[in-house]
């Protein structure tokens, strides 16, 4: 799927989203005639300092000027792994992008992430995982880390890792595994018009509250997170 196909299917009434070296910036017209801010990463582009600052700037420029929801399209590589990006403080640039998206969402600009291709690690944290609702499209293949890097860090062989990846949802890459964790709230399909599925979600957006741990528990992917978080919260409220 190309970003053009996705955008045309999402916004049959037209869009003004430009793809500049894998960075998507613009806006689009919804079925209702209202405007929606659009940004994202396309063509499996790595997210480095140069990409992140443009994406965050696009959202910040819109906060005072416009209203309405924000769509974040995701088909990226991981964060850009380079000496230059780390030298310049990539962690701050990625955190800043996530912060801007979270701020917008908390202040009347509901955010939706749509992962239609790849993404990984820090790039996913700064984009899709920083939105209120992350939606997957069939064929998307998010991964926290590629297997060669994992092999290096865990000191396990590629064979052993691939074997475990087939049997372990908590560790294995893939859309359905992330959905089971509660990270991807829903998966759309190409059988129905994407524009209809987008409008249906916008008409029924969940409240501004992070419920991903509860979702992960319901779906059996993370049986402990919600309970541990809740217990610590209760103890902390009593301890003050």
């Amino acid at each position: 799927m190309t970003p053009d196909n996705i955008l045309t299917a999402l916004f049959p009434d037209g869009h003004q989203v430009r793809n500049d070296k894998g960075v998507l910036l613009g806006s689009a017209t919804r079925r209702s005639g209202t405007c929606m801010l659009v940004l994202g990463v396309a063509d499996r582009t790595a997210v480095g300092v140069d990409e992140a600052i443009r994406l965050s700037g696009h959202v910040l420029g819109s906060i005072d000027r416009d209203d309405g929801p924000i769509l974040v399209l995701v088909d990226s590589d991981s964060q850009r792994m380079s000496k230059r990006d780390e030298l310049l403080g990539l962690n701050e640039f990625l955190a800043h992008l996530a912060k801007v998206l979270i701020y917008a969402d908390m202040n009347g600009r509901p955010t939706i992430g749509l992962i239609y291709g790849h993404s990984a690690a820090g790039a996913l944290l700064a984009t899709g995982l920083a939105t209120r609702v992350l939606v997957g499209l069939p064929g998307a293949d998010p991964a926290v880390m590629d297997l060669p890097s994992m092999a290096k860090v865990t000191k396990l062989s590629m064979e052993a890792l691939e074997q475990k990846a087939n049997s372990t949802p908590v560790f294995a890459p893939g859309l359905s595994n992330l959905a089971q964790m509660g990270a991807v709230q829903m998966t759309w399909n190409y059988a129905a018009p994407l524009a209809d599925q987008l409008e249906a979600l916008l008409a029924d957006m969940p409240a501004v509250q992070d419920l991903r741990d509860m979702l992960g528990k319901e779906r059996g992917g993370r049986l402990k997170a919600a309970e541990i978080g809740e217990r610590v919260r209760d103890l902390a409220l009593q301890a003050r």
């Binding site: 944290l125 995982l129 926290v144 880390m145 994992m150 908590v170 560790f171 964790m181 990270a183 992917g221």
Partner: peptide, 8 residues
């Protein structure tokens, strides 16, 4: 990485 999805 052994529980990469949950950790992420």
């Amino acid at each position: 990485l052994q529980e990469a999805n949950a950790g992420e």
